Amino acid sequence: MIKRFNYFLHGLLQYDFRKYNIRLVLIVLALSIIGVLTINSAADGFASKQLLGIGVGVVLMIFFSLIDYKFIANFQWILYAINIVMLVAVLLLGIDVNGATRWFSLGSFGTLQPSEFAKMLMLIIFAKFINDNKDRISRFSTILITGILYAVPLFLIFEEPDLSTTLVFVFLFCVLMFVGGLSYKIVGGILVTVIPLGALVLWYVTQPFQILLDEYQQTRIMTFLNPSEYLLTTYAQQYNSVMAIGSGMLTGKGLNNNTLTSVKGGDFLAEPQTDFIFAVLGEELGFVGSCVVIGLLLFVVIECLLIARDAADMTGRLIASGYAAIISFQAFVNIGVATALLPNTGLPLPFISYGLSSLLANFIGIGLVLNVGLQRNRR
């Protein structure tokens, strides 16, 4: 324990704090503040918890920004075991909400969603694993072993069921393998295979005899393909979301708008503070406010990629680029769902949507990226 503390202290003293990315911190805080204001406007009783979560999240961000990411990554197999135990435990002991078992109940404190923290654990674990195997990343045996190790937690999340988070993990895996140096020939071969296979799978899951998806998941896809047939049922949520965003026009109706024609006043959306927070944002802050939020999220991704470019090693490069992938994918899907460009699926808008698990996990991710930035150009 003393040796580990000395290692931490030595690393802390070696940091050049002029490299601490204050710009990224300020962008994240700006997003978080906008999130609290929008959540407060969307529904009563959630903003204070979100504000508390930001306070805890900032502490976690600073803490993880000061711990050497290589030191954390050295515990990859312990972290992998913790990840598996956590995901199995939620399946066995978690609470059931609308047929999904994704959360632990924390009583008056709300719920805890392990899959949100699993994103950060998988990011660290496989950044280290791919770095250790970077010289043979394109070998079939390495790809197979990596895929099997990755598939275990992926399967557990899919079984919750949580298809949207499963897709985040699939996208993260693809980005990590690509950045890790996977051969372009293999990437090209995968694309040639996956694109027609994906079209075949899409056809299959729309058939009445399909067994891959649960009924509600198939219904969401059918709703996306034939929205007019589901206008009064499963498409109503997205339709109302699009109407709300459009009604905001250029500058919006203003925060805390409570007229009968608003999302909140008219009760047009279920749980608007979470998956459909962008509808509230678009209605009350308009096109300008929506563009500001999208721009800030884009800046977060760009800052992460710049840090990845200058990272001291492959592990750091994978952590920073992998976190950029998580943020960009979740933002794209959340906004795509709210604007009916994608099938309805539940993914939080990073730093904006209500949800303490997502918020704290994202602050941890930013902390890791900041630490990678602190050590850039250190070999």
Rank of each mutant, 00 (worst) to 15 (best):
K253I: 05
W103E: 08
I34F: 05
G11M: 10
E160Y: 02
G55N: 05
V59P: 04
A43T: 09
L200Y: 12
L24A: 07
A331D: 12
F75T: 11
L356M: 12
I67L: 10
M177L: 15
N240C: 06
V300T: 15
L298D: 01
N258A: 09
I2L: 07
V56N: 05
N131G: 03
K253Y: 08
G181N: 08
I27Q: 01
V205G: 06
L29R: 10
F75R: 13
H10C: 09
L305H: 07
S353E: 01
I33M: 08
F332L: 15
L163A: 11
F299V: 02
S32R: 02
F17V: 10
N226I: 12
R4L: 12
Q210K: 11
S141F: 05
D132S: 09
G367C: 07
V56Q: 04
A279E: 04
F63P: 00
L149S: 10
A81P: 02
Y20R: 12
L297V: 06
S41N: 01
R102N: 04
A151F: 13
G286Q: 02
N334L: 07
G252V: 00
R102T: 05
L37K: 08
Q330V: 04
R376Q: 15
I78T: 13
R136L: 04
L31P: 03
G180E: 05
T259A: 14
A361C: 07
A42S: 08
G246V: 14
L92R: 13
I148Y: 01
V170G: 11
L359V: 06
Q217M: 14
S108L: 14
L232F: 14
S228V: 12
K70W: 00
V152H: 02
L92H: 06
G282M: 04
F129W: 13
A331Q: 09
L255Y: 03
G266R: 10
K253R: 13
L37E: 10
P161C: 15
T206L: 15
V168S: 05
I54V: 12
L298T: 06
